[in-house]
Design a protein around this nucleic acid. Structure first.
Lengths: 184, 184
DNA sequence: TTGTTTTGGACATTATAACATACAAATAAA
DNA sequence: TTTATTTGTATGTTATAATGTCCAAAACAA
């Protein structure tokens, strides 16, 4: 028996109990036999992709909620706890709020760029996308031979799996929120 | 044959070709028979959870990269284009930058709350999580009988599949970045 | 061009997922 | 308390996942 089977077993049982459903009811909703639901919950069987899919659809939950380990409900990250990362002689500063997690596929940062500050970034992983909103100042983002000038309140989404640069093109501090998404 | 099998088939074949691996090589890396790898790629079989897991681990990729589908390049959203949504007599304002998309599972907003402004939100979908960073001011977020006071630079992640409130608990404008994640 | 190696897939066999049925235990109703 | 219903699990059967073996075709090397 593999550990992944145990995770599935635990998750399915928890969801069923939370929703107060019997094995029979889950069977009806999903089209998977009651016996099989029981086997899965006891970790006695490693169901096929199709079977898991049917269960997830029947219960209207995500596939990943069946195979991922649970996380705590709430997490606060104070500014004082954040490990700031500096580049460009401190003129470009990254404040990571939420690091990447496998089940979620994105991470969240704040970024500050002093006047005349800039950063050139190498390609990120295949398919990576950045979602940026300007909170203060002005930034010029260059990617794929294009440049985008964004002012306070503007947003941009672009493919970050190629070299790109961020440049404070104004004369005041620029502040950005950044959500980095990794599809793979 | 189910659609989910075709997605898996397509993804596995794409990854294998991209990495220039033979069926035999994937078999060695994963501990799954070459024949089975071939069957999976041709959509002839719905593999068990354990088998998929072995493949993902063997190829050092995520489970979800085997069961999810692809997407276009750059999009700019100017502040002038954003449809602002107001609540609480205009004291609570939402600026949606990037709407939800099925393959991505999150959306991105900015939020402004005037002094004495607040919003009570009903439960979002099962499993929904919010990732919030304070850019200016102070906010008190209440969820699950707990309240969290956050100041500029602080962040919070919480389960939003239950009622929750946001309240400007300071005396200046509060500005937040918000990433809403829907696992389902 | 010929010879060798690699590759993907057909086919048969084995292992196990998935189902149907039966039943004891638990729960609910009278 | 008794009766009825629901629930979870054991067991046997069927369907299919997963493997091993073989071979033609493709790719590579000389």
């Amino acid at each position: 028996m593999e550990e992944i089977q145990l995770i599935l077993a635990k998750n399915l049982k928890a969801i069923r109990e939370k929703e107060k459903l019997s094995l029979e009811k889950v069977s009806q909703l999903s089209g998977v036999s009651k016996t099989m639901i029981g086997q899965i919950e006891r970790g006695e069987s490693s169901p096929t992709l199709t079977t898991i899919w049917k269960i997830a659809n029947g219960l209207k939950i995500s596939f990943t909620s069946l195979i991922n380990s649970p996380q705590p409900d709430t997490k606060v990250v104070l500014k004082s706890e954040i490990q700031v990362l500096s580049e460009d002689n401190g003129r470009y500063r990254v404040y990571p709020s939420f690091h990447f997690q496998e089940d979620r596929r994105f991470e969240v940062y704040s970024v500050e760029i002093e006047s005349e500050g800039a950063l050139s970034s190498d390609s990120h992983r295949e398919g990576t996308e950045e979602f940026i909103t300007v909170f203060d100042g002005e930034v010029t983002i260059s990617v794929s031979d294009s440049s985008y000038i964004l002012k306070s309140g503007d947003s941009i989404r672009f493919k970050a799996d190629r070299p790109h640069t961020y440049c404070n093109s104004g004369d005041t501090l620029t502040r950005l929120s950044m959500t980095m998404y990794y599809p793979t």
